[in-house]
Amino acid sequence: MAYLSLQDIVTNLYAEADEAVASENYNDASLLQSQADKIYETMENLGIVIAEQEG
């Protein structure tokens, strides 16, 4: 399911962002965090659309 795949991607991006911070690579950490946030927001929106279609 696409939703679960997106969730895995978000989890991995946040983990990579944490590793970048630990390496003091703040530019990469910021980019990774931003991308994870965007995908998370997309997931939330998809969840709403799916719920509306099922309901």
Rank of each mutant, 00 (worst) to 15 (best):
residue 1 M to F: 03
residue 2 A to N: 14
residue 4 L to D: 14
residue 5 S to V: 12
residue 5 S to M: 14
residue 5 S to A: 13
residue 6 L to S: 09
residue 6 L to P: 10
residue 6 L to G: 09
residue 7 Q to G: 08
residue 7 Q to C: 08
residue 7 Q to A: 08
residue 8 D to T: 04
residue 9 I to E: 10
residue 9 I to R: 09
residue 10 V to Y: 05
residue 10 V to H: 05
residue 10 V to D: 01
residue 12 N to Q: 15
residue 13 L to I: 06
residue 14 Y to V: 08
residue 16 E to K: 09
residue 16 E to Q: 07
residue 17 A to K: 02
residue 21 V to M: 02
residue 21 V to A: 02
residue 22 A to T: 06
residue 22 A to I: 08
residue 23 S to E: 14
residue 23 S to N: 12
residue 23 S to Q: 13
residue 23 S to H: 06
residue 24 E to T: 02
residue 24 E to M: 03
residue 24 E to R: 00
residue 25 N to R: 00
residue 26 Y to V: 05
residue 26 Y to E: 01
residue 26 Y to L: 08
residue 27 N to M: 12
residue 28 D to T: 03
residue 28 D to V: 04
residue 29 A to T: 05
residue 29 A to V: 06
residue 29 A to M: 01
residue 30 S to K: 10
residue 34 S to Y: 05
residue 35 Q to G: 01
residue 35 Q to P: 11
residue 36 A to M: 02
residue 37 D to L: 06
residue 37 D to Q: 03
residue 38 K to A: 12
residue 39 I to A: 05
residue 40 Y to A: 14
residue 41 E to D: 13
residue 41 E to S: 10
residue 42 T to C: 14
residue 42 T to I: 12
residue 42 T to L: 15
residue 44 E to Q: 14
residue 44 E to H: 11
residue 45 N to G: 11
residue 46 L to C: 10
residue 47 G to V: 07
residue 48 I to L: 15
residue 49 V to Y: 03
residue 50 I to S: 11
residue 51 A to H: 09
residue 52 E to F: 08
residue 53 Q to D: 15
residue 54 E to Q: 14
residue 54 E to N: 13
residue 55 G to M: 11
residue 55 G to V: 07
residue 55 G to K: 08
residue 55 G to Y: 07
residue 55 G to T: 05
residue 55 G to Q: 13
